[in-house]
Amino acid sequence: MIELVDVKKRFGLKKVLQGVSFTAPRGAITCLTGLNGAGKTTILKAIMGLTPIQSGSIRIDGSAPHQAMYERIVYVSDQLTMPGRMRIADCFTFMQDYYRNWNSDRANELLARFQLNAADKVNSLSKGMAAKLNLLFGLAMDADYMLLDEPFSGVDIFSREEIAAVFSSEMVEGRGIILTTHEIKEIEHLLDYVVMLDHGRITKQFASEDMRMEEGKSVVDVMREVYKR
């Protein structure tokens, strides 16, 4: 379980996270939503130790984040995190060199599934292909948790469907997933928990199934209520 307790973060004088607390269990998909600048990406980066927090605590299965955990938890940024001149095949070699949990068979399977070419250079990929390759880097690691930052950002409808299909596949089964997105519609039925953010504060968090059963509202309905206020 990933657990955030009273996490606060400032960029200069700007308060980006103002006491954020939530838990994301393993085997469930937790979605962070909010308007631009709500602090979604900062939360993911803070969990990964890519930006320090001012106060509060972050625990992963009960322990504080440390460098070795990068084999158990994988962050899929909204940008490709490989040098532009590298070929996809070289990226695979790089990942295999550094991560013991890199699953080459799964990587090649996903390469075919996403119709990517191993000889292509990273900087030659379109936005949709880059998003798929990013997702591939996350899925090809046998990690317990996956953090995905805007996996649908700037992606066309077909690529979006392809990516959404992955979330209902056996590839994510048993993993704890935290994702940030504005494009809720495609994956709404897959979400287990939703955390709504506004200006670095949690405005609402709920289990989507409970919300459907008890109040008869979908995630999109709740989003409309919260953000159109």
Binding site: Q67, Y75, T81, P83, Y98
Partner: peptide, 20 residues
């Protein structure tokens, strides 16, 4: 070179599972 630009490779380098 790893921090700026469209492909921030530094993110990957900082997430390597060994001491920075």
């Amino acid at each position: 070179r790893d921090t700026l630009g469209r492909h921030p490779f530094m993110t990957r380098l900082l997430m390597l599972p060994s001491s920075r």
